[in-house]
């Protein structure tokens, strides 16, 4: 299996995606941003379609759209009810635009399914290199601001009263999230990307007592899902995102059951 270059690319890309998704997921869960992550992936879909329409790489269109909207969302501020509603509106607009760009681009349908559902064969070596660069950039920034991010995500009141620069921090985090969504969508597809960015971390939190362990377990769950998913997809020829979704949902249910018996 690994003698095929496209599988090598898929495994390399998948490994990276699992690592940043697991780590980012911890903060997505702590900051209650699952819903927003979902919306960002829809915006990513619109961006990818826009990219195709202009003849770009879909990833670049995605990066453009998700980054701009993540900064926009940061500016929407803290009023959470207003935020939920505007996010719903934005996400409707994004899907509409995505459909429009795709039909204008007059590309074949397989391109569209690739964006929406992800694909294994679509990833070139050049894609992998760009994804490595983006992922490394995301990881470096996270490492630099990790302590601030941890304080603000897990104890927002404490962080605010200690005078942390919480607003800037939250914009930086959203931009990192935009990058992660765009990178991860390359394999899982924009329809299912929020799975990797939420479920592994959501499941991990029931098994551990520290934030560091939560990240480690979340990365492990994401890695197992991606590796196993790629393998099963190769063997069965079924879509990889289907397997990843099923595996991560299983982890999550096991975590809930474990939590039940323990309590």
């Amino acid at each position: 299996m690994l003698s095929y270059p496209f599988m090598q690319n898929a495994y390399m890309a998948g490994t990276l995606i699992a690592i940043i998704s697991g780590i980012m997921g911890v903060f997505v869960i702590a900051r209650n941003m699952s819903f927003l992550t979902h919306t960002l992936s829809e915006i990513g879909f619109a961006g990818a379609a826009f990219g195709i329409f202009l003849g770009w790489q879909p990833l670049n269109g995605m990066l453009l759209f998700t980054t701009i909207s993540s900064i926009g969302v940061g500016e929407l501020g803290a009023k959470s009810s207003r935020r939920e509603n505007s996010i719903t509106a934005i996400s409707a607009l994004a899907i509409g635009l995505g459909i429009l760009f795709l039909s204008l681009a007059d590309s074949n349908a397989s391109y569209a399914t690739g964006i929406l559902f992800g694909s294994v064969i679509g990833i070139s070596r050049a894609n992998v290199i760009q994804m490595v660069a983006l992922s490394v950039a995301v990881l470096i920034v996270i490492a630099l601001i990790y302590r601030f991010l941890k304080f603000d995500s897990f104890d927002p009141v404490g962080a605010r009263v200690q005078g942390l620069w919480t607003r800037t921090l939250s914009v930086i985090f959203l931009v990192l999230l935009a990058f992660s969504v765009s990178v991860a969508a390359q394999i899982v597809g924009s329809l299912l990307i929020f799975i990797l960015l939420t479920l592994p971390a959501a499941a991990a939190k029931y098994f551990v007592h520290t934030v560091g362990m939560m990240s480690t377990v979340a990365v492990a769950f994401a890695l197992i899902g991606v590796w196993l998913g790629l393998y099963l997809s190769y063997v069965t020829n079924w879509p990889v995102s289907f397997f990843i979704a099923v595996i991560e949902v299983l982890f999550y249910f096991c975590a809930l059951i474990y939590q039940r018996i323990r309590a």
């Binding site: 302590r147 941890k150 991990a204």
Partner: peptide, 28 residues
């Protein structure tokens, strides 16, 4: 502070929580 909301499901030990206040640039 008078009020605080730390989610009861967070995997945050007391030790971890206390250490949060070392928020500065540096190793994670």
């Amino acid at each position: 502070p008078q009020f605080r909301n730390v989610d009861s499901e967070y995997p945050l030990s007391i030790q971890d929580f206390v250490g949060l206040n070392f928020a500065r640039f540096g190793v994670p």
